[in-house]
Amino acid sequence: MNALTRILNSPVGRKVTMAVSGLLLLGFLVAHLTGNMLILVSKETFNHYGHTLISNPMIYLAEAGLLGLFVMHFTTGLYLTRKNRAARPQAYERNERAGYASRKTLASTTMIFSGLVVLVFVPLHIWGFKFGAYYESAEPGVRDLHRLVIETFQQPAWVIWYVAVMTIVGFHLWHGFGSGFESLGLSYRKGLRRFGQFLAVVIAGGFLLIPVLIYMIGDKL
């Protein structure tokens, strides 16, 4: 146990914790987005999908795992940020980007802020949908989550909030994916970073497309 604490509490171990939890959470986002896309198929498909998910007893294990990863990611992130700031007590009077080989971007310098937005967003999101209004569908025992989603995204305020947060998530992933692989010592290659940026656009774009589509043509879905 002592050796494990030592590994996790080392400067490399903390970054590995960030990378592993972050990349697994990104994997969850891919699954979540794929599920969401079913709303574009049909009302029944979407509601059945939701019903299948929550009626499987393994869901509690999966939820506990996700919560664990989420807590691990943000507590380590907050701790690292505090420590990193302490490493430079006095700021530069003038600080510029070096250019050339540097990959510093708006995304990479704002990871803690984009992360904090997600930290606020996730509880609100779960409260709004998972613990939101319960409508019974035509089939007894099956929740009509479709109706709740459509009702929510016909309110412009929710659409704006979701579009804004998903854009910020995209920024977080833009740097996070490639950075995670570098922290794991698996790859420092340009191609993998580019793939991460592509993934960030696809995931953020996919998530924000749904509220926008519902707002525009919700009555047809």
Binding site: S102, S179, E182
Partner: peptide, 13 residues
Amino acid sequence: GFGACSNEGECEA
């Protein structure tokens, strides 16, 4: 007391 790496590559630049 050095900080951790954020993989920004400013160092290499």
